[in-house]
Amino acid sequence: MKFYEISKEPINIQEVIDKVVQREAGAITTFIGTVRELTYGKKTLFLIYEAYEAMAVKKLEQIGREIEERWAGSQVAITHRVGRLDITDVAVVIAVSTPHRADAYEANRYAIERIKEIVPIWKKEHWEDGEEWVGNQLETKAYPSGKPEEGDLSE
C-alpha cells in the first residue's frame, strides 16, 4: 500500500482514511485542504499545483516517519493533488490514526505545517487580473545556507 502519494486525479478521501485503520487506534483525524476562493479579498479563479514528484513523496514519507517517532502507535497517510484545481476542490488529504484522540489532532496539525515547510510542491494562483506562483507569501523566509534549518532535514 502506498501511504504517501502525489495524485493527478481527484483524491478519494475514504481511500486515504482506510489506509490508517488499525485495531490499536481509538481515533482517526482527517485534514482536507481545499481551494479557497477569496484570499484577503482577492478572488481566485483556479490554481495549478506542481510538484517535484519523486522528492515530494520522499519528504511526505519523512513527515510520516517524524510523526510515527513522536506519537507512539500512530499511522499516517497523505495524498497531495497536482494539476489544475477549481474552487472547493480537494488539494490534500492527511489521515492520522493514534490510540488516543489528542495525539491524532496534534499529529495531523504537525503534518500540514511540515508540508508547508519541506515538501516541494508549488501552487500558481490564477486571479481575474493575472497569475503568480505563490511562495512564502510575505517573502520573509530566506535560506542563507541554501537549505532548510537542521530540524528540517531527514538525517
Binding site: Y52, M55, I118, P120, Y143, G146, K147, P148, S154
Partner: peptide, 14 residues
C-alpha cells in the same frame, strides 16, 4: 536567496 537546492532529491547546502 530564497531558493533551496536539492541534490539527488535531498536538500543540500550551498
Amino acid at each position: 536567496d530564497t531558493v533551496m537546492t536539492a541534490i539527488n532529491e535531498e536538500f543540500a547546502s550551498n
